[in-house]
Design a protein around this nucleic acid. Structure first.
Lengths: 219, 219
DNA sequence: AATTATTTTTAGGTTTGTCTAAATTATTAT
DNA sequence: ATAATAATTTAGACAAACCTAAAAATAATT
C-alpha cells in the first residue's frame, strides 16, 4: 500500500467524485470543490501525474489512473465506514457525520479499517445510502430509481439520497425521511410533479419534484 | 478551544510525558523522544513559547504552561479513549493499540470524543492501566504500588504497567499478565529480588526485579 | 474571423516544519 | 581555573502545499 498525504487524499477523493458525476475533471471545478486557488490545483495535478495517480493534460483536465482510483476508493471506504460508525454507534445525526468522517478518513491503517468493518457487521451502505466499498475495493451500486418516478398509492423504501447538502438533509429530517423509511405516495400533482406522501408513522408531507428526485428507493 | 497542528500536538504531548517523568524538559531529550533534530526542537519551542503554551528559557529547558498542559491533557484523553476503543471494541492487542491511537488522537472534534467516551461507558483507565482524563481534564491517578513490594503468599490485581515498551508488553503477554490479572507471589528470592508468581489460570511464571517493578497493583 | 471573456498555467512568494553545519553556552574533567 | 566535552542555539536551506498577479491558451460572441 502506498501512503498519501492528507492533501493528496483530498485531491484523489474529490477527483473521484467529480469524475463519477461528469467525466473529465476541470481544474476550476476541482479548485472550487477543494476551496483552493486554481493555481494550487495545477501544481498538485502535476505532482499527482508524476506519481502516476492521475492522467493530466494541460488546459484539458484530468482523470484518475487505475492506481489513483484504487487510492480514492480506499479513502471512500474509510469515509463511509466511519460515517456508519458515527451514526450507528455514537448516535450522530446524518447531517453531522460527514464533517467528522472527513477527518477520520485520513487514518490509513488497513487493519484498523478492516476491524472496524467487522465490528460494524460489514455494512453495505453508509447513513446516506451510499455503497461502502469492500476490503478489495469492490463497490456494489444498486441502480437508482427516484421517488419521483412512483405513481399514486405506490409504496417504497428509501435507499439513498442524491444531493447530500446540509439543506437537503435538514429538509428530509424535518419531513421524517431517512434511509430505510417506508414511503407511500398519496397524491401526485400533474402540474408540477410535486407529491403528497405518507411515512411510517402516518406523518404526511409535501415534496417538490426537486426533492423527490433526490430520494432514491427500492420496492 | 484552541486548535493545534499535528506537530504542535506531538510536542505538547511529549513534553507532558517527559515533564511528568522528570521535571524540566531538556531540548535533547525532547528531540530524542520526537525523533527530530535538536535544532528543530528549538525552533518549535520558540513558537510554542510565543503562543503561551510552554515556558522556555534558552539553554535551560522548558515546561508546559497552564494552557499547554490543558492542551496536552486533552490529547492524552483522546489517545487513551481510542486505545480503549481499539482494545475493547475492535479486538486489538495491547501492543498494537498505541501506534494506531497515535494517529486517532489528532482528531480534535470535541463532540466526537465525548460521544466516544459515553459509548465506551466512561472508562477510567486505558488498556495499560493509565488513567483517562475526563471531559473537564481531571485525572484520577491512583497511587502506584509495584508488584516488587509484595512478599510471599500475597495476592493483588494488576492495575497499570510502568514501562510500556513493546519488549515489556510482549513479555507480559507471554506470561499471561494483563490489566486486571490476579497475581499471587509464590516465592521471592532475597538475592536478586526476583520472584515466582501464579496468575489466575494456575499459570506460573518467573519475574525479574526489573519486570515486577514495572507492574503496578492494587489489593 | 476577430475580439472579448473565461479558463488555466507560469512565475514568484509565503508559511510550516524540518534539516545540516557552525557558533555559542553550559558542564565536566583535568 | 582552564581545557575539553556536551548541549543548545543560530544561520541558512529545503520540501510541501498553499497564495496572488500576470501571461498564455481556449472558448464564446459579435
Amino acid at each position: 500500500m502506498i501512503r498519501f498525504s492528507i492533501a493528496e487524499e483530498n485531491y484523489l477523493k474529490t477527483i473521484y467524485h467529480l469524475q463519477n458525476a461528469s467525466g473529465i475533471v476541470a481544474t476550476n471545478d476541482l479548485a472550487a470543490a477543494l476551496h483552493t486557488a486554481p493555481a494550487s490545483v495545477t501544481d498538485m495535478l502535476k505532482k499527482l501525474s508524476k506519481k502516476g495517480l492521475v492522467s493530466y493534460k494541460a488546459y484539458y483536465g484530468c482523470t484518475l489512473t487505475e492506481a489513483g482510483e484504487e487510492g480514492a476508493v480506499s479513502i471512500v471506504r474509510r469515509h463511509r465506514l466511519w460515517e456508519y460508525f458515527l451514526s450507528q454507534k455514537l448516535g450522530f445525526s446524518w447531517e453531522e457525520v460527514h464533517e467528522v468522517a472527513e477527518e477520520l478518513e485520513h487514518i490509513s491503517n488497513e487493519k484498523l479499517i478492516d476491524k472496524l468493518d467487522a465490528f460494524l457487521g460489514f455494512p453495505r451502505t453508509d447513513p446516506h445510502g451510499d455503497p461502502i466499498p469492500d476490503a478489495k475495493g469492490k463497490i456494489i451500486q444498486t441502480k437508482q430509481v427516484s421517488l419521483a418516478t412512483l405513481s399514486e398509492k405506490q409504496v417504497a423504501i428509501v435507499t439513498q439520497i442524491g444531493n447530500q447538502s446540509p439543506e437537503v438533509l435538514e429538509m428530509l429530517d424535518e419531513k421524517n425521511i431517512s434511509i430505510g423509511s417506508r414511503i407511500q405516495v398519496i397524491k401526485k400533482y400533474a402540474f408540477d410533479e410535486s407529491m403528497e406522501v405518507r411515512t411510517d408513522n402516518k406523518h404526511q408531507s409535501y415534496l417538490t419534484k426537486e426533492l423527490s428526485q433526490n430520494i432514491f428507493i427500492k420496492n
